[in-house]
Amino acid sequence: MSDSMRTSTVRLAGYAGDEVEAYLARPEGGGGSRGGVVVIHHMPGYDRATKEMVRRFAELGYDAICPNLHFREAPGAAPDDAAAVARANGGTPDEQLVGDVAGAAAYLRGLGGSNGRVGVIGHCSGGRQAVLVGCRLEVEAVVDCYGAFVTGTPPEGFPLKVTNLVAELPELGAPLLGLFGAEDSFPTPGQVEELAGILTEHGKAHEFHSYPGAGHAFFAVDRPSYQVAAANDGWERIAAFFGTHLAG
């Protein structure tokens, strides 16, 4: 682990060959090959807090990248403004999301020193999207941090055009780490239990942890929902999980 790294804004080929902006962080020094991590940002967008997570994965020894899912709607706009446009459009379509993450994973695998192993992680809407990626793309590890509507049904009037992933879960091709707040409403503890049951039924490797007293967005250091103990334990579990599945 080292805090010496290089960061840059790059462009990659996303869904349908579209050029997509992305934030890249790479550790400096150290020989040998290393895995990569695609970070899927939450609905508030390609923001400072998400970029800090990308840098944290570089500190852990991975090449890490976050594609800007809202780049098409509002190139160059502030994250809040771009997110508002994306939300008004119903969010990022699933096919587009998968194409952008596929481009990000290919970018990581094409870097010098890559061992070809890529994990994906997402928070909130990104948690659901990370599970979707695990069902549709070849990745080595998936982390879902309180992703809503992997199971369950969005309430009437919900602004994002999303459906649950129950029909896709039998196709999950990578181990899944799930980190949830026991006081969360999206997903509820019952929906988390339902997800665990479906994965068990289909023989899918998974490891779930729910944190008492934590609600939604407990990893978000810039929000009142931040829970220090839960977030610190979650980061330790993420590091161990990726260390198991992305090494070698």
Rank of each mutant, 00 (worst) to 15 (best):
S225G: 08
L199F: 02
L165C: 04
A84R: 09
F186W: 11
F57T: 01
H41W: 10
E171C: 13
G243L: 00
N115T: 09
K51V: 11
T163W: 04
S33D: 14
P187E: 02
H206A: 04
D233M: 11
G181V: 11
F149E: 02
A214V: 10
Y211H: 08
G248I: 11
G234S: 15
Y211L: 05
R117H: 15
R56C: 10
L132S: 07
F180Q: 02
L195A: 09
A64P: 03
T92I: 15
G213N: 09
V228L: 14
E236T: 13
G213Y: 06
G116A: 08
E21T: 15
Q129C: 07
G157K: 04
R11S: 15
S4Y: 11
N89S: 13
E140P: 02
N89I: 08
A230W: 00
M1P: 12
C124P: 07
G103N: 02
M5E: 12
A167H: 13
Y15L: 10
G215F: 01
P44W: 03
R109Q: 13
G103D: 06
L24K: 05
N164Y: 02
R34A: 00
C66D: 01
G110I: 07
G90F: 02
A141K: 00
G243I: 00
R48I: 12
E236N: 14
D3F: 09
F71M: 06
A174R: 03
E73T: 12
A88T: 11
T200M: 06
G178S: 11
E183K: 12
G197E: 03
A58F: 05
H216W: 00
G32N: 09
L69Q: 14
L199D: 00
I65W: 01
F57I: 10
V142L: 03
E28V: 01
G126C: 04
